[in-house]
Design a binder for these strands. Sequence first.
DNA 1: ATATTTCATGCTAAAGCTCACCAAAAAAGC
DNA 2: GCTTTTTTGGTGAGCTTTAGCATGAAATAT
Lengths: 152, 152
Amino acid sequence: MLKLTKKADYGLMALKYLAEHPETPALSAKDVADAYGIPAQLLAKILQRLTKVGLLRSHAGMNGGYALSRDARQISAFEVIHAIDGPLFITSCFKGEKSCDLTPSCTIKEPLARVNETIAGVLKSISIQDLAEQEHAAGKAHDAQGLVSLTL
Amino acid sequence: MLKLTKKADYGLMALKYLAEHPETPALSAKDVADAYGIPAQLLAKILQRLTKVGLLRSHAGMNGGYALSRDARQISAFEVIHAIDGPLFITSCFKGEKSCDLTPSCTIKEPLARVNETIAGVLKSISIQDLAEQEHAAGKAHDAQGLVSLTL
DNA sequence: ATATTTCATGCTAAAGCTCACCAAAAAAGC
DNA sequence: GCTTTTTTGGTGAGCTTTAGCATGAAATAT
């Protein structure tokens, strides 16, 4: 449980791949799909969505493809996940703005909302660049330390 | 996305309700279901599972029902969620022990595993007692502060 | 014994996710 | 201008998960 969808995984992988190849002006959806062995059609849709929200810049035609619209350091994992999977709510209660449909007694959501914000904060603190660096510097101890406080 | 199931919600609500009524020796599934307006049959299954993992103690027969097997302070939200929804994995990659099925190139899972542990840590730091107190002391500033560190 | 309640299954809809197919528009190269 | 490459958009089928219901068996207090 509490896992994100394959779409989000694919999206993160694709952005990481783009971040690792800054020299090429654009990479096609098929290039990325082949590199990771993920379904091309599905990845295409994902990249389209990421383009629509402004994380990617698309270029049609030959030698076209996708490229990051910002520096990899400026794109958080949270943005990617949010763009693909929608708003993240840990409780299945609030599906929008209003609270529980029939149960006004869902007294759980308040404390869990804090948890929600904490998780969001963690994901916001991780950039695509972090994901890309992870591979090159596998096992290398990293000095950067994100501290997240949770107040109940 | 990234939301837990209604079952987990119901489970947390039920345990919180039990924690709020320590005077009664046992509460039936129907009592809890009626109190929150959640389907009784579904809640029964959830409580059965929580009993099986040892979080609850069941008592059959008349005036029977369920009761916490430990102090509410000793039961974490993580245990409840884990018991109901199974192990929490943020990536859809590792479905067990082995990594990605066809893609050995899922270079995302390592950094996300850290996120996973962080979230688990947050959930472990929250007890049923915390949930129960939340209602009585709504708006009251709480001194306890759980600190979770995330090292990328 | 009997009524009440938990326990243990199995089953059926409903929803979401994954993935594939197809046609159309855009841009570059010949 | 035509072809090729690539994005864009719609649609639908197969699958898994989830939510909820129904039913019967075991346990227990009165």
